[in-house]
Design a protein around this nucleic acid. Structure first.
Lengths: 250, 250
DNA sequence: TTCATAATGTACGAAATGGTACGTTCAGTC
DNA sequence: GACTGAACGTACCATTTCGTACATTATGAA
């Protein structure tokens, strides 16, 4: 009985053609038929759950996401979600952590040390802007977490550790620029980071309302390019000692 | 029976001291006692519901908010919510519209026409920044709406109409500045508005995660002041033809 | 092989939740 | 005063939703 139901629900629908279901079913009900057995694969199961959960939470929020729906979209069952993740909130926290982790990984690919300060800063800002643009799920998770007053991120030491390095990169570039006499002094790296983040984040987080309110298709490629230029220009103008470099006039 | 229960649930708990409840109850159960009668006050009821609903939705989101809880915090009943607002989503849309309306009202108080361009722009940016800071509920509603892909704001012509004027103000100031030779030309008012909005919005929307991640108390008054200065400075430097005016050195 | 424990599946329960059926009262009009 | 539609209240229902009890299988160690 157990074998039968499980086979129908999971395996056959995935692995076997539908026409086979009926005959296999009866065959299977004779307990432990053939060599076909269940495979335990904890890592795969957990990864699968995390993948789906991240998607669902980022799309619908903590209260909007449904455990049953997550389970359905998974190759495993609801039982397994609770087995590995305790409850809905823990699952959400893990998904949040995963989002930060993935983003941080990509960020680390950026290597600025060999570039001169102005070039490095330009690169950093442009990269951040585009990177946010390509990580809407992450942006949404952060939005959702802020709706929850950061109640979950507070519990996560992992996330804090992860992002500590982000400002350091900027700090190094900025300091090199100051030393070289091209950046004006007395700016705080974290505040600079705040400014860059704000512009890049808002571009994704508020695209729907902004576009709608001003009847302006913010997502249109030409507008995205203009915005990207604006952001880069704006930060540079703010940091540079003299706005000497060419005026791109957009 | 009906009279009794209603009185206990709503009126007495609000209007009368608790000790009076018991005796009034029996008294009331003799149908239509004394001159005490129900008052119909549709406007008040609706306003009351809107007030509570806005609070709840902005705090917990569309799916997180509970109709029962909204009803409880109201002076009226759940029945009235459905009577006036059809269903949860309609109520949410109305709350969203209300949020935009209120914010827009305050914005209109700003009168920039009599100021010279630089002063006017400075004022506008500073005002926007502070205004957002003082409207966290509005910010949250917008965040939530973006989580929903702007699905509801799409249905609202009201909101679009409301905000059309916001960019106009900026446009006027900018044009005056260009004509006076103090602002550089070829910038789009809407894109300028986008930049100002991004910085002001992010300051509120992401305060929790940002503070947590970088162990930096963004809400601390001194930091808020520094950020405000940065934002104003940044926009001015971007728009001004020459960054001639004093360097506040933050 | 035996056995212990980890991993997995099924079915179900209790509470929460959006929404409604049904009734009563209010307030203005004739 | 009678009447009518708007305004309001109570109790309830159907469904959803998180979570769990219980049973079974997989897998590695002794």
């Amino acid at each position: 009985m157990y074998e039968m139901v499980r086979s129908v629900n999971l395996w056959h629908t995935v692995v076997l053609p539908p026409t086979k279901v009926k005959e296999m079913t009866t065959e299977m009900s004779t307990r432990l038929a053939k060599g076909r057995t269940r495979k335990n694969d904890p890592e795969r199961v957990q990864a699968d759950i995390m993948r789906v959960a991240t998607q669902e939470f980022s799309e619908k929020g903590l209260s909007g996401a449904r455990i049953d729906e997550i389970a359905e979209k998974t190759r495993t069952s609801k039982r397994m979600i609770y087995y590995y993740f305790k409850d809905k909130e823990t699952l959400y926290l893990k998904a949040l952590e995963r989002s930060y982790q993935q983003v941080r990984q990509q960020e680390e690919a950026l290597d600025l040390d060999h570039l001169e300060p102005v070039e490095a800063l330009t690169r950093l800002v442009a990269f951040t802007f585009e990177h946010h643009l390509n990580s809407p799920d992450f942006i949404r998770m952060v939005m959702i977490e802020n709706i929850h007053h950061g109640r979950f991120i507070e519990q996560s030491d992992l996330i804090q550790t992860l992002n500590a390095g982000a400002v350091n990169e900027l700090e190094k570039v900025y300091q090199r620029g100051v030393d070289a006499g091209v950046f004006r002094p007395n700016l705080e790296a974290i505040e600079l980071h705040w400014l860059i983040s704000a512009l890049s984040f808002f571009n994704v987080s508020n695209r729907y309302t902004f576009s709608r309110i001003f009847s302006w298709d913010q997502s249109a490629p030409e507008n995205q390019q203009r915005l990207a230029s604006h952001v880069v220009e704006m930060v540079l103008r703010y940091v540079l000692k003299k706005p000497g470099h060419s005026d791109p006039a957009i």
